[in-house]
Amino acid sequence: MSVTHEKTMLKSFDAKTATRALELAREALQIETDALAALNARLANDETVGQAVSLLLQCKGRVVVSGIGKSGHIGKKIAATLASTGTPALFVHPAEAAHGDLGMVTPEDVVIAISYSGEAAELMAILPVVKRMGGHVIAMTGKPTSSLAKLADVHLDVSVAKEACPMNLAPTASTTVTLALGDAIAVALLELRGFKEEDFARSHPGGALGRRLLTHVRDVMRKDAAIPAVGLETRLPDALLEITQKGMGMTAVVDAGNKPVGVFTDGDLRRMIEKVQDFTKVVIKDVMHLNPRTIGPDQLAVDAVAVMEEFRINQMLVVDPDGTLVGALHIHDLTRAKVI
Rank of each mutant, 00 (worst) to 15 (best):
H136R: 15
K70G: 13
G142I: 07
V65W: 02
A120M: 05
D153Y: 03
S147W: 00
A184F: 11
V130Y: 13
G118R: 05
E119G: 05
A83G: 05
I112E: 02
L148Q: 04
T81L: 01
A170N: 03
V137C: 12
E96W: 03
A161I: 13
L102M: 15
L90D: 03
R62T: 07
T178S: 15
V129D: 01
M124D: 06
K150W: 00
A173C: 02
L127F: 13
S115H: 00
L55R: 09
G118A: 11
M140I: 05
A170F: 09
V177L: 12
I138L: 03
T175D: 06
F91Q: 02
A121T: 14
G75P: 10
G69F: 13
G61L: 00
A188D: 04
A152V: 07
E163G: 11
P144M: 04
A97P: 05
K60D: 13
M167R: 06
R62S: 13
G103L: 09
M124F: 04
A83K: 11
L148S: 08
R62E: 09
C165M: 12
L189W: 04
V187P: 03
A161H: 09
A113N: 08
M167L: 15
I68W: 07
P88D: 12
G135C: 11
G67C: 14
L56G: 02
A83I: 09
T141P: 09
G142M: 07
D153C: 10
T172R: 04
G182A: 13
H136K: 15
M133F: 14
T106C: 01
Y116S: 10
V63I: 15
D157W: 01
R62D: 01
G100D: 09
E96G: 11
L102D: 07
T178P: 05
P166W: 02
V110W: 00
A95E: 14
G61D: 02
V111W: 01
P166L: 10
Q58N: 14
S159P: 06
H155C: 13
S66R: 11
P94C: 04
V105C: 10
T176W: 08
L181M: 15
L179A: 15
D109R: 01
T175Q: 10
P144V: 08
G135R: 10
L90G: 04
P171Q: 02
L127W: 14
P128I: 04
G134C: 05
L55N: 05
V160Q: 07
A98Q: 12
S174P: 05
C59M: 00
S71T: 11
M140F: 08
G182W: 12
I74H: 06
A113L: 07
G69T: 13
G142C: 05
A95K: 10
H99G: 12
M167C: 00
H73F: 13
G142P: 08
S147V: 00
L179C: 14
